[in-house]
Design a protein around this nucleic acid. Structure first.
Lengths: 222, 222
DNA sequence: TATTATTTTTAGGCTTACCTAAAAATAGAA
DNA sequence: TTCTATTTTTAGGTAAGCCTAAAAATAATA
């Protein structure tokens, strides 16, 4: 008998999944609260509930960790989200800064078959419009070998393959400079003073990029 | 400032819209309750709330009627539902008996632009997979001139253009006999005893159809 | 018209998912 | 180590949307 989850429960699982990505330590109540913009007390409540449901390992005052089962549920939500984002951009011609809120709703639609059919319809994409990997139906994730722009050295050349931040403001900012997925980047200079980087974009315009921005852009070196 | 509605509120509006279709009289509390499978007391509560929001005209012990505004909201929900059903059948290759529950969820997704973009992507369909008309973005509905199969006379010829009942059981039953949208029907005989009808399907198989089924199938005469 | 049956509403409760404020536990600094 | 600051939990409350049972209003029937 298959367990079901409310949208709220699903949002908690997804956030915990993201907060514990590439981390062995436990996720704190407060970090969940700030990610979900809820009170810490509400998190304590939900976290006990989800651990009773077998989705989390929870130790009072310590923090939480997804169980195997919880991790699978969370990963499927990430899959849903990223496939819907791909649909919105590829088929409905939304731009990458418009799709998050809509996908946030679509990801909760319950159906045994819907998301697999959507994936097939989209041609089994491996990455979403922000360059994030889409877990396949077994939860397998295709890894990329990209690094933050900020880590490149003078002279390095590469292609933009992803962005870490998904806010509308940030993505629109990137659009202005043509810094979209697939764009060619060459590092012309690095300034130690503020960790900014001068780059050449698609062999044309030069642009100085701040440390903050450079940390959010991921590059595949070539 | 745009009014927003919970999924629950939306479901009430949609059901009231359907129950009051082609009817001038008020919709009763009990009929809403049975359509939504909720207790009558819950309906009273929600109906007062929706009338306070200006969506319904409600008179205690009498019944309800959608206001102009409520009617628009309801029609947009019907539009959402039917466009999503079209998407599921046309693009994801679901059959007409599988789409209702999924569309029931998708119809509640909130976005200013999503449904119009979906409509465009689908090529502005006028009817959904069950032959029901899809309201356009202004709420305009294309009317059809079809009649229940049961009303045809011996010798009449026509095409199936719609079905009134959307249950999985009924639609699967129709599939078995090839009684799908676009199928050619010729009335061979009518039996007064039980109001059943003998038909020829696509100039091939003969089939006797019960009164119950004949009332649910809509035919455009040719 | 009086009585009975049906429909609808009110009253009081429950669950989920939030909240604030206070108490308890843990972590950090002197 | 002890005291203070921070984090987390507990306690007690709220709103939405549902419920059942009882009361009130309306409709049907003798």
């Amino acid at each position: 008998m298959k367990k079901t989850f409310s949208q709220s429960e699903e949002n908690y699982l997804k956030v915990i999944f993201k907060l514990s990505f590439n981390k062995t330590s436990l996720v704190s109540t407060n970090s969940i609260a700030s990610a979900l913009k809820t009170a810490a007390a509400s998190v304590t409540e939900m976290v006990s509930k989800l651990s009773q449901k077998g989705m989390l390992d929870y130790e009072r005052y310590k923090g939480v960790k997804l169980t195997k089962e919880g991790s699978i549920v969370a990963k499927m939500l990430v899959r849903n989200h990223r496939l819907w984002e791909s649909f919105l951009v590829d088929k409905l011609h939304y731009s990458w800064d418009e799709v998050h809120e809509i996908a946030e709703q679509l990801e909760h639609v319950k159906s045994q078959t819907l998301i697999d059919r959507l994936e097939e319809f989209l041609g089994f994409p491996k990455f979403d419009p922000h360059g994030d990997p889409i877990p396949d139906k077994n939860g397998k994730i295709t890894m990329k070998e990209d690094v933050p722009l900020i880590q490149l050295l003078t002279g390095d050349v590469g292609v933009i393959t992803g962005v870490k931040e998904h806010t509308k403001a940030f993505l629109k900012y990137l659009d202005q400079f043509g810094l979209v997925l697939g764009t060619n980047i060459q590092v012309l200079d690095k300034y130690e003073y503020d960790n900014s980087v001068k780059i050449r974009i698609n062999d044309q315009a030069e642009q100085v990029v701040s440390e903050k921005v450079g940390q959010q852009i991921r590059i595949q070196k070539i």
